[in-house]
Amino acid sequence: MAAHGTIAGTREKHGLGRVLHDTRYVFWREMLLPLRDPFSLVFSLLQPLVFLGLFGPLLGAAVGAPAFGGQSTLQWFLPGVVVMIALFGTSMTGSNLQYELMTGSYERILATPLSRSSLMIGRALKEWAPLVVQGLLIALVCIPFGFVFHPLHVVAGLVILGIFGIGLGALSYALALVSQNKEWIFWGVQQTLLFPLMILSGIMLPIEAGPGWMQTASLFNPLTYLVNAERELFAGSVGTDTLLGLLAAAVTAAVGLAVGVKAISRNIR
């Protein structure tokens, strides 16, 4: 068979090269789901617009412009919505895995030579990918309402979110593995962590408006740095906040992948 030759030819890659190579295919397989059923994407595009359209005006009215560091409400809130979509999306990585754990699909893929990290990165990036479209789209839609669009900065912001998403996706993946056969644990943990993290990062409302203990708590939340970085980038500048955000994303990715690889190789059953 011709196949024998190809295996020997392309499987010899090692290390990072192989992870990137394998990630491409894991990502591509996952992307076939929305691509074969594009309607699911339409709804995912509507969601952030609803948030911006319905929550944004309330935010401006309730908190008032001074809290946003001189920015318009929209300019301040839009990056937060983008982070929120990334958070919701990539923390769901494990939920799609749960179905594959129940059938033999996960095991079948585990028996292929794909590198373990690529299994998580590919799946996490699939949850992140729609964000690129969503983020750019809502930015464009908001221009008539006074949003100032800095395309390169926004793209940089999305890349940082992608790195963060790999970490969160890997953690979600590990959570799905640990809660195998007990799906409620996955949802319980995911929901219990998601909302405090979100509120304590100042995504929805400025954390500066909260009491001191909340502000202190927010300093230990990697998401805080990410939100600050996105706000800085979306405002069209690059500075300390961006660097700290990138660092927080990189640390999340490293921790997430380490935990994930361990969860995969831990031999249950």
């Binding site: 059923d37 033999g104 028996a111």
Partner: peptide, 13 residues
């Protein structure tokens, strides 16, 4: 390797 379960992902073609 052909495992005990079904290898195909449910929603895939």
């Amino acid at each position: 390797y052909i495992g005990q379960g079904n290898g195909g992902g449910h929603s895939f073609r």
